[in-house]
């Protein structure tokens, strides 16, 4: 576990080092405004219908999910690259909203990763988010149109067809280029 944590920390560090100096400064400044907002499922649905953007991408994660944290820099990077092109990014924590330690850790993680976009904590019973999203496992990524309708999902549920964040970015780039 400790080794894994170190690995994640190292991966995050590498990703952050990869940004330009200017970008790091800009994100440092924004990290102070990184917030984790509690939303019920219905509130999240309203948020997904966003006529001001071309698409909304939702990254479902939790503080206990190693691969989610390992890959989170990809989400931050997609926000940096594609938000100016019409992509809204939402991170969706499926942590237990009644677990204060988990919520604090989620906030700390988001700030340390400079998650300068919409960060939502699903305010439902632990485990219910999986039913609502119709997924078995996280990470999982969803893309919604401006009408709030899902246009694509990437999941880990099929052992023979698991996604990578490279798949997601490729799809997003093509989607935005075609609209």
């Amino acid at each position: 576990m400790d080794g894994t944590r170190r690995k994640f920390a190292a991966a995050s560090a590498v990703a952050i080092v990869g940004f330009s100096v200017v970008a790091v400064r800009a994100e440092d400044a924004s990290s102070g405004t990184v917030k984790l907002e509690r939303l019920k499922w219905a509130g999240l649905q309203q948020r997904l219908a966003n006529p001001h953007v071309k698409y909304t991408i939702v990254d479902a994660w939790s503080t206990t999910c190693g691969p989610c944290k390992e890959n989170f820099p990809h989400v931050v990077e997609m926000n940096r690259k594609y938000a100016p092109k019409g992509l809204a990014v939402i991170s969706l924590s499926l942590d237990d909203p009644t677990d204060k330690a988990a919520v604090t850790e989620a906030e700390r993680f988001l700030k340390s990763n400079h998650a300068a976009f919409s960060n939502v904590l699903l305010d439902e019973e632990l485990g219910e988010g999986f039913d609502k999203l119709n997924i078995n496992a996280i990470p999982a990524v969803f893309i919604f149109g401006p009408d709030g309708k899902e246009v694509k999902r990437f999941t880990m549920d099929d052992p023979k067809n698991q996604f990578t964040y490279k798949d997601v970015e490729k799809y997003v780039a093509q989607l935005l280029a075609s609209k």
């Binding site: 206990t64 999910c65 190693g66 691969p67 485990g127 999986f130 039913d131 078995n136 496992a137 996280i138 990470p139 880990m156 052992p159 023979k160 698991q162 990578t164």
Partner: peptide, 12 residues
């Protein structure tokens, strides 16, 4: 039923 827990990552 839907399983609950950590996702399993499979090597590509």
């Amino acid at each position: 039923t839907r399983p609950y827990g950590c996702g399993i990552s499979y090597a590509k």
